[in-house]
Design a protein around this nucleic acid. Sequence first.
DNA 1: CGGAGCTCCTGGGGGC
DNA 2: TGCCCCCAGGAGCTCC
Length: 286
Amino acid sequence: MPELPEVEVVRRGLEAHVLGREIAKVDVLHPRSVRRHPAGARDFADLLVNRAFVAARRRGKYLWLPLDDDQHAVVGHLGMSGQLLVQPGAAADEAHLRIRFAFAAGDPELRFVDQRTFGGFAVAPMDAAGVPVPIAHIAADPLDDAFDDARFLEALRRRRTGVKRALLDQSLISGVGNIYADEALWRSRLHYARPTETLRRSEAVRLLSAVREVMAAALDHGGTSFDHLYVNVNGESGYFDRSLDVYGRAGLSCRRCEAPIRRDPFMNRSSFTCPTCQPRPRRARW
DNA sequence: CGGAGCTCCTGGGGGC
DNA sequence: TGCCCCCAGGAGCTCC
């Protein structure tokens, strides 16, 4: 389950391996992987052949590769299980290979492998700022220079929802998934059901700092992975679950106070909290 | 229009 | 051993 730091590692890999190379052939092996390309798989491939990627960019967990026509980009999301692999053409196809990008100069080729097919790609026009139109509505992520702290803190406290829901809302702040939301809330000692409108400014500031710390720590380790499905662009698995303080630690003791970590159902998934460090607010909202 | 809930998908794992 | 069901999750969509 790649989160922002893992996607950044993939972006760097793409930058190193696929830029400036003429695309010779694109095979779409599963239609669902191009479902965000309305004109279909054939059109997706035709728009890319004889073109080249000139950059590798990211916003939140979205990646895009601008083309040498200066107008379009391949844009996509890895979803839960997506991997971008740089592989020799002679390597056997992976069990869940969905898209193959082969280059005129030969090896290596780029492969999109995705077991659960939540991920996918499209060719889309870019807006004046160079952002693909389909993702122009996504907020900046907290590691982006363009992220406006003051504006985020204001918008957060104007919301009328639980603080974790707000963290997961990509129109407010992008790139925060379930794992890092729980980690950042634990660090800042906030319960997921805390109503956003009751957050003191200092608490909101602490929370934003914690989000950045969690992401930065993961990036330092070359991307976090808690799932064998996650593999970086070179196919090497990152592994960093020792750094997790609460996520997935139900019943284990809190690293701060030793109380047993609890797991609660949350939006058809889970939230992990320390009942002592993160007491449930009297007026809970989620 | 903001907020909340549903849906897509696959394979690992537990229960029986 | 085999079958069934639950679970993981981002984000687009729909509904109120």
